[in-house]
């Protein structure tokens, strides 16, 4: 028998057993997305029509590389949480829903690792 009080057990956890973590992380990443996406938009606009060498030169700056990496982590995390809710709302079959949720996580991880790999590769010099 658990010695914890009912309030202690339920605090932070709802019937979904994960409490408000999803909701909270969606907000945390929403806030971090604001400055990071502004940075990303400036970065993209500054490199419109740029040669590959110019992009590599910019990313070789550690501040640019770190900010770019943070942007992709924040955006992809936010994106995975958001798409998860969309899947949970519209995909009702057990197998289909499970497959879609897995695909969501896997594709997000793939995109994240690919983005970080590209950034680090350019940052460390091709």
């Amino acid at each position: 028998m658990s010695m914890r009080t009912p309030l202690g057990r339920v605090r932070g956890l709802g019937s979904a057993k994960s409490g408000t973590e999803h909701w909270w992380l969606q907000r945390v990443t929403a806030i971090s997305n604001i400055p990071l996406v502004i940075f990303l938009v400036i970065f993209v606009i500054r490199h419109l029509g740029a040669s590959r060498a110019e992009i590599v030169a910019s990313i070789s700056n550690p501040f640019v590389a770190i900010l770019l990496a943070l942007t992709f982590v924040s955006v992809l995390w936010h994106m995975r949480l958001g798409l998860q809710v969309v899947i949970e709302d519209y995909v009702h079959g057990h197998v289909a829903k499970f497959a879609a949720l897995l695909a969501n996580s896997f594709v997000t991880a793939l995109l994240g690792v690919a983005a970080l790999y590209a950034i680090l590769k350019m940052s460390f010099g091709l």
């Binding site: 990303l40 590959r52 992709f72 994106m79 995109l111 790999y117 590209a118 950034i119 350019m122 091709l126």
Partner: peptide, 15 residues
Amino acid sequence: AVGVVLLVWWLSAAA
């Protein structure tokens, strides 16, 4: 989310 895929494609191409 589709746009993010395009962005990752662009960065990967640059690398």
